[in-house]
Amino acid sequence: MLGEGIIQGLAETARNFFGSFVEKDRLTTVQFPEERRELAEATRQYPFLLYDGADPEAGLRCVACQICEKECPPRCIYIEKSKDKKPDFIGKPQFYPAVFDIDVSVCMSCQICVEVCPFDAIRMDNEFELSTTDRFGGLLWPIATLAKPNEYYQSIHPTEAAETDERRAKELAEAQAKAAAKAATSVAQTPGAGE
């Protein structure tokens, strides 16, 4: 019969329409600004810099090695290395970035900076409401905007952060053990005791 397919289709539409009142599967939309869906843990938007402790300047993990600047495919990172050094979390003197800018209007959220960073200093944020009235300055983020505490990282990517923290704690313990051993040998080092 001509029109049978159309009637079948309309029946299907009706089933979806009435089903949307009772089945969660058929109505998947949410009323956005008031109602929000939980973001996946892996969600990534734009990078931020991590710091330990309370002071963003003293605790900044970045050592200005400039690997991320070099590897960034759209080249949206700009780093200027400091002249002097400051101790990092295991007490080793390291450079720090005098300037670290990310132009988020150029960034394509690819996460390669995070992958290549050997110091766990840069991670991806999941903040996505970033509209600003300043097209140029508002989207060029300096250290002051980028630096965020480790607790924030733990809150947005708990699994990843736990892994990182564990690894860093291990590194710290190793460094401390090494320092202690060194101190012990230097104390124990008397003429004739060595080889």
Binding site: L2, G3, E4, G5, I6, Q8, G9, E12, T13
Partner: peptide
């Protein structure tokens, strides 16, 4: 459902 909706549609 999609086929029911479309495939036989004249």
């Amino acid at each position: 459902e999609f086929e029911q909706l479309i495939t036989g549609n004249e």
